[in-house]
Design a protein around this nucleic acid. Structure first.
Length: 300
DNA sequence: CCCCAGGCACATC
DNA sequence: GATGTGCATGGG
């Protein structure tokens, strides 16, 4: 007999929707006010409540530490926000995205997911990962209408897949990167668990040695899976945010933005970065791109 | 038709 | 060391 379990996490200032849909994790699906995903091989449903977050699993669970840790329930939002730079752009981003949190994800799933993320929109990343889980993951019991879902595939499983099979999941040119990285993790050539005890620069170098992993993806994994809060993933959205909010819209070169982000946002820069990312993507009015064609037609 | 997307590897200067 | 380009695929 295996019955579902339920619990309530007491937590304040936690915007569940913003957190689960902010491009740090890719498996969450919304159904009404509930959010569902497979975390650590377990199907789980979360629901925002006045007192905190209600969680339900499809299978019995009497120790919720794994989920508390994933959601970072113990983090006090105020103590995080207090470490942000005291400037107007950050104040505005915090006002607009209050309650946005960083998750603490499993390293392998996080690494594999972000290898698949390059030059893709978030909805497409979600689609690729869903394809991958359906094809290579293990079936797990779920409480939704479908009755089942799939775990994120282990590195061994992806290492033994063919490049063509991965491409069939729409992984595109990322397929060989994912496959080779999966092989190195499965073979023990790289020990993802060991990174947690390393200084951030050493851990980053371990990740940078993997195919398909550059500075941006390495920083995503350092921040979202290991909790190195000084890691500052610099992607196109964050670069847009920095140029717009800190460089008066000037076309500052990447090098300048790298230096600025490394020195200005401090030891919790990664958290600030997530606020800028979410703020830029969801709250700032969409600036209509100066269309070259329209410009040319006017010149005639 | 165009440009862009939570980039990276590789060639070239 | 800096800069340019190809890479799959889908959205707008």
């Amino acid at each position: 007999m295996s019955l579902p379990s339920r619990t309530l996490f007491s937590v304040r200032e936690y915007d569940l929707a913003a957190t689960l849909a902010s491009g740090q994790a890719f498996r969450w699906r919304q159904s009404g006010d509930a959010w569902r995903a497979v975390v650590g091989g377990k199907w789980v449903q979360l629901r925002p409540m006045a007192e905190g977050i209600e969680a339900a699993t499809a299978s019995p669970c009497n120790d919720w530490v794994w989920l508390e840790n994933y959601l970072q329930i113990q983090v006090e939002f105020q103590s995080v926000a207090a470490l942000f730079p005291a400037d107007e752009p950050m104040r505005e981003a915090v006002r607009a995205c209050r309650g946005l949190r960083l998750l603490r994800q499993a390293p392998w799933e996080c690494l594999a997911s972000f290898i698949l993320s390059s030059t893709k929109q978030i909805t497409q990343i979600q689609q690729i990962i869903e394809n991958l889980c359906g094809k290579f993951g293990d079936k797990v019991k779920a409480l939704d209408a479908r009755g089942s879902d799939y775990s994120f595939p282990q590195p061994e499983r992806l290492a033994s897949a063919s490049e063509a099979e991965l491409r069939a999941c729409k992984a595109g040119f990322r397929a060989p990167y994912l496959r080779e990285t999966a092989r190195r993790v499965a073979s023990g050539e790289v020990d993802l668990r060991a990174l947690a005890a390393m200084p951030v620069e050493t851990a980053r170098n371990q990740l940078l040695a993997l195919p398909g992993v550059g500075r941006k993806i390495a920083d995503c994994v350092l921040l979202f899976a290991y909790g190195f809060q000084e890691a500052f993933p610099l992607d196109v959205w964050v670069m847009k945010a920095l140029r717009e909010l800190y460089f008066q819209g000037r076309p500052a070169p990447i090098k300048t933005l790298q230096k600025f982000s490394a020195s200005y946002f401090g030891p919790c820069g990664g958290y600030a970065q997530q606020y800028l990312f979410h703020y830029m993507r969801t709250k700032l009015p969409r600036r209509r791109p100066e269309n070259a064609r329209a410009g040319i037609s006017l010149v005639v």
